[in-house]
């Protein structure tokens, strides 16, 4: 399978994978902004928004992770870059999970860690998307 791909023409990243790679970034960022708003106002609805936004981000992160895992199995050249993207997605997923669980705490107990966690997660998600969008192809260049 890899052999035929190597001889084929260069193909752009699959648009659905591109979407999955990018989709979690604004959601994690939205979570971060909601956390900051909660920190300023103590209005619980901001914490609820953050929890839902991060949960939504996790759905896309999970799907992107699955896709990257399959890409990792199929990739031959540039394997290292694909691996880096996969690892970054895995880190995003792990951090997002911790962030999500942290948001299950009551009231002010989520502060001040919530925006810190959401910020780190957003940053790693951004890195994963940047690496993924610049390196991964479903077909391989020769």
């Amino acid at each position: 399978m890899a052999a035929s791909a190597e001889t084929g023409p260069a193909r752009p990243i699959h648009p659905l994978f591109a979407f999955l790679l990018a989709a979690d970034v604004p959601l994690f960022l939205g979570g971060l902004l909601s956390d900051l708003a909660y920190g300023r106002t103590a209005e619980p609805q901001w914490a609820n928004f953050a929890a839902w936004l991060i949960a939504g981000a996790m759905v896309f992160t999970g799907l992107a992770l699955l896709w990257a895992f399959i890409a990792l199995l199929l990739a031959r050249p540039r394997w290292g870059w694909v691996l880096l993207c996969f690892v970054l997605l895995l880190a995003t997923f792990a951090l997002g999970l911790v962030d999500n669980l942290h948001h299950a705490r009551d009231a002010w107990a989520i502060m001040p860690a919530a925006p810190i966690l959401s910020g780190i997660t957003s940053l790693v998600a951004l890195l994963a998307a940047a690496v993924g969008l610049s390196t991964i192809r479903t077909g391989n260049r020769t």
């Binding site: 914490a47 609820n48 929890a51 839902w52 949960a55 999500n100 948001h103 299950a104």
Partner: peptide, 8 residues
Amino acid sequence: NPGLKGWF
């Protein structure tokens, strides 16, 4: 419980 946790 409007949050994600409330759903659980």
